[in-house]
Amino acid sequence: MAMVQPRSTKYRVLASHLGMLGFIVIILFPLLMVISISFRSGNFASGSLLPENPSLEHWYLALGIPYTGEDGTVTQPPFPVLLWLWNSIKIAVVSAVLILALSTTSAYAFARMRFAGKGFVLKSMLIFQMFPPVLSLVALYALFDKIGNHVGWLGLNTHGAVIVASLGGMALHIWTIKGYFDSIDRSLEEAAIVDGATTWQAFRYILLPLSVPILVVVFILAFIMTIMEYPMASVLLVDTDKLTLAVGAQQYLYEQNYLWGDFAAAAVLSGLPITLIFLYCQKWIVGGLTAGGVKG
């Protein structure tokens, strides 16, 4: 508590509370609206925030169950949302595991070993991480096209291609893990090596168990970033049943086929788990996001 308080403080506190609450109402309006819309019947209905005739129509469709209306008409689910969600999760989990494995071992070398070109490589990684892959899409498309002629599961329109392509964005994670390794005292590992452990054993049995928290964070971060990846997946994936959620979701809102209500249910269904994971891990995630940029 500060010692010197102007008299107007009480009013300013009140104004701050009101201001922030008002702001939060505006900020949350779109999110509340979309939840409300997912319970309205029809795709064009408008109404208040609390739907007058709540209907589970869109939720049935989002879950892939044909919906029978009151007048007996049966609506088929427009898109395989659950399949898209499954594709997204599959790609994201495999990517995150690969990214975690590869960036942990690299970060170990960067944090503990001396070798030629270390500083140069680390700095170049920081620079290249800023180049968005969307700009080299033509080249990436050509690359996977050529590989796909000989290695089928890595070609265009395969999940393998999307997974492998996500490995290009490892620099950020390497920096995050390296920062954490740097903060762990290396005397334990040195003692183990004096006792006859190999470098690999020191890494595997001493450093890794100490670093579980950062590994969890990097895994979640890599997972979320792959789930949200749009440009690469939108070019590499073609078939409807191969799409990820990020690419497929926009198909609800085409001018000619505007399925606002169905979209709302699908959005809540797929967005909620990701949002909750993010909120739960936000402290670590934010630390990880900023570490790559500022920490040495």
């Binding site: 939060i24 949350l28 779109p30 819309i37 064009f44 789930i227 979701a249 809102l253 959005a267 909120l279």
Partner: peptide, 30 residues
Amino acid sequence: YRTMLILPYAVPAFISILVFKGLFNQNFGE
């Protein structure tokens, strides 16, 4: 406050952008 204010960041961007696309729609947008 912190949790509420952070929400827009926690929702996947590809979903919230599409939500706005619908909300801003000329004819049916809220």
